[in-house]
Each structure stands twice: as C-alpha cells, then as structure tokens.
Design a protein around this nucleic acid. Structure first.
Length: 497
RNA sequence: GGUCCCAUCGUCUAGGGGUCAGGACACCGCUCUUUCAAGGCGGCGGCACGGGUUCGAAUCCCGUUGGGACCGCCA
C-alpha cells in the first residue's frame, strides 16, 4: 500500500440520495482533497432487487450539483475497475472459494424463512437474534443430503468465538466488541451475489482504499469487516465513523422529515456552495467561530479531529440563513443567472433575455437580495416586477387599499408620475414627497398606499428603487386600476380562513 | 432483549481540570422611519442526573436516565 490517501464514496443505487449520503460523500471528498489523495466512486448494487438506473442518475446528479468530483468511477474508469459491484462477481467468487477451501467459511443450507423463524424464537426468549450456527459443521454427506432436498446454499463466514475485536476509529476512538456475540454473517447469497459486508471488504482492499469514512451506523459492522480482512489476509484500512444526521425529532432522517433528497434542496432554492457549507458544519467545526466558510476555507480547516462524535439535527432555519448569506455575496449578474430558470418556469420571464433585460434582472435581484433566503424567494416575492397580475394581499387591503382616502391619493400620484420628466429613484422620491406635502400628510401616507397598489403587498425593498425598475406606464396603470377597484369597494380584506 | 455509541442554550457548536462557559441560527425586546421578511443594538437561554477523584470538575472515573445505531441472503 502506498502512502497516497484513497477514500471512496460507495452509495447503493436504491432510493434517493439523502442528506446523510451527501454528508458522507462530502467528508470523503474533503479528506482526500485536503491531503492530496484520490476519491473513488463505487456503486454498491449488490441488492439485485432494489437497485435501479434512476437511483444511479440521482447520485451522479447530487454529487455534481454539490461540486463533489471523483478520480475513479464507473463513468471515468481507472486502474482498479470495474467500479460497479455487479460487474465484479468473479472477483468475489475467487475470494469465497479461498475462504471455503481454508475452512474459514462454510455452506449454509437454511432458507431465509427458517433462519428468521429461529431468530424469532430467540427474540421471544430474550436471546440475541443471531444465526444459530446450524450448518457450521455439516459433513460432506449432510451437505449432499441438503442438495438432494433441493436446497442451494449461501456462504457464511466463520466468525471467531472467543476474544475481542478492537476497532481503532479515528473519530470514535477505541471500540471493543466481544467475539462471542456475533453470529456468522452471510457473505455470499444463494443468488451468487456477495452481501454488502463481503463486497465492501474485498473492494476496499482491491481498490487500495486507505481510509474508510462512513456513517456510524456501520460501526458495529466493522467487527465483521475486520475479521473478514483477517480471514482473507487483507490489510485493514483506517476507519473513521461519522456521526449521523437526525431529523428535528431526533430520529433517523426519513420521508416524514420533509426534504430528504439532496436534490430537493436544490429545488427549494439552495445554492450548492451554501449546501456544502451547511453539510460541512454538521458534525464538524473549524474550531473557531466562523460559520460562513468557502469551499477553500473548509478544505483548509478540515480534519477528522475536528469531527464530533455526537449525532446532529439538521436545522433548516440556520440552513436558510446561511443560504441567504451566500446569495448576498453573489454578484448581481451571477445571482440573476441562477434565478432566471425559476422565473422562466413560473412563466414570469422569457427564456432568452436580451442583454438589457439581463441587466434589468440583475437590478431586480440585487434589490431583493437583502431579505431573500432562497432562490425561490424571488419567484414568490418579486412577481410584481414581471407581471401586472399580482395578488393584493389581505394585509395591504386592510391597511391601505380599503381606506377611503386611498383612491384619490393613488390617482394624484398617477397624475404626478405622468407629468414627471425622468424616471429614476431620485425623481420618483421627489415626486412622492412633493405630493405628500401638497396633500398635507406625511410621506408614509403616500408611500404605503403606493406600495400596496403597485406590488400588492406591504413589505419589500425601497419603494423608489423598485418603482424605478418597473416601466412608468405600468406603474401609472397599476395606480389607476387599483384606485378604481378600491373605490368600487373590491379591495376589502378577504379574511381568508 | 443483547451489544456498542452518544449527551454544553430550542438547534448547530467552541471549550478537554481553574473561562463571567464563547459564537451562530432561532426566539424576544428596542431602534431606524419608507414597509419588513432587511439593517443596527440588546436580551432570554445550556454543561441531563447522582456519586466519586481533586485544593478545584462542563472537562477525568463509575453508575443512572435519555437518545441513537446494530443484531438481515438491505446497504
């Protein structure tokens, strides 16, 4: 084994790529990149029944969205391929034969049903529900008998019965498991496919993986892996078991926790660079008080020693805040480019804007970015920049649009705007304040109804700056239309339940 | 049921024998006055519990409690 660090991300293409998987992938990537090593992507599709092509695409999509790349993998090859376990069956078979010949593994003829039944009985008696070793010392003759009965065997590893298995974990420390309480695990299924335990150990060794970084759900499995490595005469990689990520109720992340697939966060409007930061801060800390860290800063500060042992809860509020921080840092043009697809999808903007429209959009998102937390916020809160068909919110109706003096104010403002020479924030502000003075009221008495009329809401960025970005004739039309509706009594609060 | 892991504000965490137990998100209040969903300022809030060891424990040890993972021909 060379000194070069080699880590791997080994997802199984079943179901979606959730936050926990992404977290593990990121930490493997960080570790390898930090120390100038290689990242291997290996597909663990030894579950013949549940592996799907779609799930595989989701994995590629998730990793590339996050900017996690790999040096070797199914798509790009490498010296240790193939990188898909279902294509490595002959390799596993070779190792199984070795184990069988050495008596370190044996054929088990029990059916899954039979094993499960006996496990059930053990559970009922309060015993650990492990394999009872029924087939561990079958004679040649008995084996033939079983075959005659029509049984096909799976292969089990003969685990040690005495002593302890000690795991030296870079994060969890030294963990000891007694050898007397682990049943013999299946390493090769009847189907001829290896089980996870076997494939993982064989491939990590064959692929020269130096550091296994995975979720701590695998800690107990490591007992099997270590013994398997010894039986096979393979080296032990270094192990680091990362703490899990839990839902708000402190249980394992699952569908009922809302967004579980990493791509759902993309849809929600998270920036990938923010997501990386969010993920990095779960179970790890730079050791100082920084919260917003670029990928480079994370790489710089990263270490396994900085990882905590305790499981963490994904805090969606903090995630949103962090995403907002990232959006504020983006150049307006960049932010516009990222928001654009969503606007197109919502039917609010053309697919191929002119340079002028891009510039205009940059202005819009720049105005909104102080309070936006997600890319999707722009679609939700800024519709009035793109269309006249925005909704008049109840709060706006109640506070301003249903007020008796409002129609007159709006019309006076429309007149004043029409008479205005220029159309920029400064002139607009001047006009508004002038009108307020003429009417003998505070500026707010004009500003608020105007905002309510032109945007349909009571909150938003600087009124003068947002008006500047909407064509004057549209603003005037909106003011007149709203005045009319208001006068007709159609803008009373709806009091939706 | 057995085994293993974990335990600092609601959440993410810093802190690893002597700290006013620090920060961030959230929350609350005040403020700005052109609104808040933004900004500024401030506040509330924590070492799970019980025993040790020690001059001194959030920190080390033991136990209790709570949570989690594993005990699959799933990974």
């Amino acid at each position: 084994m060379s000194d070069r660090i080699r880590t791997r991300f080994a997802p199984s293409p079943t179901g979606s790529m959730h936050v926990g998987n992404a977290h593990t992938a990121l930490f493997n990537w960080l570790y390898a990149r930090k120390y100038g090593g290689d990242v291997v992507l290996r597909i663990e599709d030894t579950d013949e029944l549940r592996s799907t092509r779609e799930a595989l695409d989701v994995i590629y999509g998730g990793l590339s969205w996050l900017g996690i790349d790999w040096d070797e993998g199914p798509d790009r090859g490498g010296p240790y391929g193939p990188y898909v376990q279902s294509e490595r069956l002959d390799i596993y078979q070779k190792h199984v034969d070795e184990l069988l010949a050495a008596g370190k593994a044996y054929r088990c003829y029990c059916t899954p049903d039979e094993v499960e039944q006996r496990r059930e009985i053990m559970r009922a008696r309060g015993l650990p529900p492990r394999y009872d070793g029924k087939c561990e010392s079958l004679t040649e003759h008995q084996c033939e008998q079983m075959v005659t009965e029509g049984r096909t065997p799976c292969i089990r590893l003969r685990m040690k019965r005495t002593g302890n298995t000690v795991i030296h974990d870079r994060i969890q420390g030294e963990v000891v498991y007694g050898n007397d309480l682990c049943g013999d695990p299946v390493i090769m299924k009847v189907s001829g496919f290896p089980t996870y335990h076997f494939a993982v150990v064989v491939d990590d060794a064959e692929m020269g993986i130096t550091d296994v970084i995975r979720g701590d759900g695998h800690l107990p499995n490591t007992q099997i892996h270590l013994q398997l490595q010894e039986a096979l005469g393979l080296p032990h990689p270094r192990y680091a078991h990362l703490p899990m990520i839990l839902g708000e109720d402190r249980t394992k992340l699952s569908k009922r926790h809302g967004a579980v697939s990493i791509m759902e966060y993309q849809e929600l409007g998270y920036l990938p660079e923010a997501m990386v930061n969010i993920l990095a801060l779960l179970g790890w800390s730079p050791g100082d008080e920084r919260e917003v860290l670029s990928r480079e800063e994370i790489l710089e500060a990263f270490s396994l020693e900085g990882c905590s042992k305790a499981a963490s809860v994904f805090d969606i509020k903090k995630a949103e805040w962090l995403n907002g921080e990232y959006m504020k840092q983006l150049a307006p043009e960049d932010l516009a480019r990222r928001v654009h697809p969503r606007l197109v999808e919502a039917g609010l903007m053309e697919a191929e804007p002119t340079p002028e429209r891009w510039e205009w959009l940059a202005g819009v998102v720049d105005l909104m970015k102080e309070r936006a937390k997600l890319l999707s916020t722009y679609v939700q809160w800024a519709a009035y920049f793109f269309t006249d068909e925005y909704d008049y919110e109840d709060r706006a109706r109640e506070k301003w649009l249903s007020k008796e003096e409002t129609p007159a104010t709006l019309e006076a403002l429309a007149d004043a705007f029409e008479a205005l020479g220029a159309w920029d924030a400064v002139s607009i502000e001047g006009t508004v304040r002038e009108l307020a003075e003429t009417l003998g009221v505070g500026a707010g008495k004009v500003i608020h109804p105007c905002r309510a009329a032109v945007t349909g809401t009571t909150v938003g960025p600087s009124l003068f700056h947002l008006l500047e970005l909407i064509p004057r004739e549209d603003v005037v039309a909106r003011l007149r239309r709203t005045a009319e509706l208001s006068r007709a009594g159609q803008l009373a609060p709806r009091d939706a339940e």
